[in-house]
Structure formats: structure tokens, C-alpha cells
């Protein structure tokens, strides 16, 4: 690769020292990372094409659970896109998470049907009872609360996803009870 281009290439901001491309993984502290290998293989499958950026970001999130700046830098370097562009795309789409989610994830559907059926009150109750804010995690990192716009389960609204399980026709008490029992189980297991 052209060295000049490499020096000016995207992802070397604060995260990378401007050395050879091969070194980037080392600098990112990602060496010997099996997950990185998976990502690399996927990017190779996509021919390192810039137009596959969204697909690659999806893959990265699937592998890591979220996409932090180090991973973004690695992707930008690999597919030779400007850092600002990659960062811009990753932050535009709300599906991509920049922070590591908590151990258990509650996703409340805030689609119209669920809203009309009172999901807002349930969300407020979760926030209050487990001291977690929508879009964030609790201080101990055990619980995250996310909002999504319609999961398409409108006919059984209000719907809430607890760790990948869609629960339909929920009530405030039911949700609070479920979450409490999950957290209780967690406690017992760690003891």
C-alpha cells in the first residue's frame, strides 16, 4: 500500500500510532482475539468493500454485543474509509450500540399500539424500581433498559423483550416480578 496514503488514512487518530497496517490489531489490544478473527473473515468475505459498511457493523455488533471506537477504528482501517465517515454511520443508526449493555437487557416496545395500551407507565415503573434510565444501564451493570420503536408484536401489546424473550400483554406487576426474579437468580448463582 502507498505509504503516504497509509499515513493519512483514516483510523489512526488517538487510538493508533501511525505505524504499519499489520500492527493495528496489536495497538488496539485486540491481538489474539478470536472475535477479531471472525470480523476479519467476514470483511474478507465482503471484499473489504466500503458499501458493505452497514453489514460489517451488524457483524461487529453481533460478535461483540456493541461497537466501541477501537473496533470502529479497526473496521475503518481495513476497508479504507475515513474515520469520520465510519463514525458518522455508526452513530446515525440507532440499532448500533456504542456502550456495552448490562448483563440482562430489557427492551420495551414504544410503538404506537403499545403506547396506546400504556407501555409508558410500565417503562416509568421499571426506571423507578431498578434505578435504571431508558437507554442506559444500572450502576452495577446488571440491567440495561432500551426502548425500541415497534417490534411488530402490536396485536399482543404492550410487549417487552426480556433477554431475547418477547413477552406480550404485559402488566406493570408482571414485568417487575419477572425482572426481580431474574436478578434474584443472578444473586444466588453468584453466591
Amino acid at each position: 500500500m502507498d505509504t503516504k496514503k497509509n499515513l493519512r488514512s483514516s483510523s489512526q487518530s488517538i487510538l493508533l500510532s501511525p505505524k504499519k497496517k499489520d500492527n493495528s490489531a496489536v495497538n488496539l489490544g485486540l491481538k489474539n482475539d478470536k472475535r477479531l478473527l471472525k470480523l476479519e473473515n467476514f470483511m474478507r468475505k465482503m471484499n473489504y468493500k466500503g458499501c458493505a459498511l452497514l453489514e460489517i457493523l451488524h457483524k461487529a455488533q453481533e460478535i461483540y454485543g456493541y461497537i466501541n471506537k477501537n473496533v470502529l477504528a479497526y473496521i475503518a482501517e481495513a476497508i479504507e474509509l475515513p474515520a469520520s465517515h465510519v463514525f458518522g454511520v455508526a452513530t446515525f443508526y440507532s440499532y448500533f450500540k456504542q456502550q456495552q449493555p448490562g448483563k440482562h437487557v430489557i427492551t420495551a416496545c414504544l410503538g404506537t399500539a403499545c403506547y396506546v395500551k400504556g407501555v409508558e407507565e410500565i417503562i416509568c415503573a421499571i426506571e423507578k424500581n431498578f434505578s435504571v434510565k431508558r437507554g442506559g444501564s444500572s450502576d452495577d451493570g446488571k440491567l440495561s433498559l432500551f426502548i425500541t420503536r415497534c417490534i411488530g408484536a402490536c396485536a399482543i401489546g404492550p410487549a417487552i423483550i426480556i433477554d431475547d424473550d418477547i413477552i406480550g400483554n404485559v402488566t406493570e406487576d408482571l414485568v417487575l416480578e419477572k425482572i426481580t426474579s431474574i436478578l434474584e437468580r443472578e444473586k444466588i448463582e453468584t453466591c
Binding site: 483514516s10 483510523s11 474515520a83 469520520s84 465517515h85 463514525f87 458518522g88 446515525f92
Partner: peptide, 18 residues
């Protein structure tokens, strides 16, 4: 291509690299 937009809507901002 140092500059680009990050986030969207009312939260959109000019970003420099990452």
C-alpha cells in the same frame, strides 16, 4: 475527509475523525 456528521436529528454534530 477529516470532518463528518455524527448522530442524527437534533443531536447531529460535526465530528473530527472518531
Amino acid at each position: 475527509h477529516t470532518l463528518d456528521l455524527k448522530n442524527r436529528g437534533k443531536d447531529a454534530q460535526i465530528t473530527i475523525d472518531f
